[in-house]
């Protein structure tokens, strides 16, 4: 088990990480989410013992990272944001060096290197110079390095960046497989990935923890608004009236003209999902409006994420919020 207690990091006067605490249980994948500049990489660097913390404590399998670094780091595999590879080394040579660093006994070295190369499917490039590899391969070589020696605890900072969709799926499967005998903390920008892979998520923004929970709980607690999409052919005003006035509909958030008399409506509903849908369908058909599609969206992790990060409510359109977040991130970058 890995415990993180009151972890704080100051860069000069800037507080990058503010008093965060959470634990990673055995055989658990913990997702680590946050917009750019939220303090994700700083936190991971501190957990890995690369950056000293300004305050707080990290315990990996019973050893304090700052007091017994060598002991704690034996149980740790770390894949940083930029894979830490030497461009002038060959893949196998590099892994052999890392195996030495991780104090893998000579007798086991070769089989261990073959094992991780097989897991990451990099055997075919083992004699190539790392500088000649594509980004995806470099990423996987870095990942292989983290798995050497089979450490109990893995820190993966955006492990799927730079991989093609096929490889992304493979690496996700691998991470899920690794869960059997590892604890994993895993950061990503891709929310669907986090919801597909992680058991629990920690959401941080500007150095503060915004939420620590399972994905299901977060979805449930994020408010009961469900998004309804209706595409019709016929009178726009008439349809808008019907949808707006149906019981259970909170408001219409968007109307798009699709040409040829087709219109798409997006609305928020807070009543019973099926009842509202049926009621709308009946009324529309009764007034001679044709329905080409109707469906609802559950609040997914993305909207939960947006709501939690940007507590200014979910009333405006989702995309607007997403834009705001990236604008904020850009602003923050400029400030830095």
């Amino acid at each position: 088990m890995i415990t993180i207690e009151n972890l704080t990091k100051y860069y000069g006067k800037n507080r990058a990480v503010n008093n965060i605490s959470f634990t990673i249980n055995d055989n658990e994948i913990l997702g680590f989410l946050g917009p750019n500049g939220a303090g994700k990489s700083t936190t991971m660097n501190m957990i890995a013992g690369f950056l000293p913390m300004s305050a707080g404590k990290v315990t990996i399998c019973g050893s304090d990272v700052s007091k017994e670094p060598v002991k704690a780091k034996k149980n740790l595999g770390y894949l940083p944001e930029i894979p830490p590879v030497y461009p002038d080394m060959r893949v196998r040579e590099y892994l052999s060096f890392c195996a030495g660093l991780k104090r893998i006994p000579m007798a086991k070295k070769s089989s261990e290197i073959s094992r991780v190369m097989k897991l990451l499917k990099i055997e075919d490039v083992q004699h190539k110079l790392i500088k000649n590899l594509s980004k995806g391969y470099k990423q996987r070589v870095g990942f292989a390095q983290a798995l050497l020696g089979d450490p109990k605890f893995l820190i993966l900072d955006e492990p799927t960046v730079g991989l093609d969709p096929n490889q992304v799926a493979e690496v996700r499967e691998l991470i899920k497989d690794l869960k059997k005998d590892h604890s994993i903390i895993f950061s990503s920008h891709i929310l669907s990935e986090v919801s597909a892979v992680c058991d629990r998520v920690v959401i941080i923004n500007k150095g503060d923890i915004k939420a620590v929970d399972t994905i299901e709980n977060l979805e449930r607690s994020s408010g009961s608004d469900i998004v309804l999409h209706v595409k019709i052919k016929g009178s726009k005003t008439k349809a808008a009236n019907i949808i707006e006035l149906t019981q259970g509909v909170k408001e219409i958030t968007k109307i798009d003209a699709e040409g040829n008399d087709f219109f798409s409506f997006t609305a928020l509903i807070n009543g019973g999902e099926d009842e509202t849908k049926t009621s709308i369908m009946t009324q529309l058909l009764n007034s001679g409006i044709q329905i080409s599609e109707i469906y609802t969206d559950k609040p997914d992790l993305e909207s939960v994420f947006v709501n939690i990060i940007n507590s200014r409510s979910s009333k405006s359109g989702m995309e607007e919020l997403l834009d705001e977040i990236s604008a904020e991130a850009a602003e923050k970058k400029e400030e830095d």
Partner: peptide, 14 residues
């Protein structure tokens, strides 16, 4: 420059 300092610092060597 290579970012490999992280590797050395997070390995069980001092």
């Amino acid at each position: 420059k290579n970012g490999t300092e992280v590797l050395l610092m997070t390995s069980p060597v001092n």
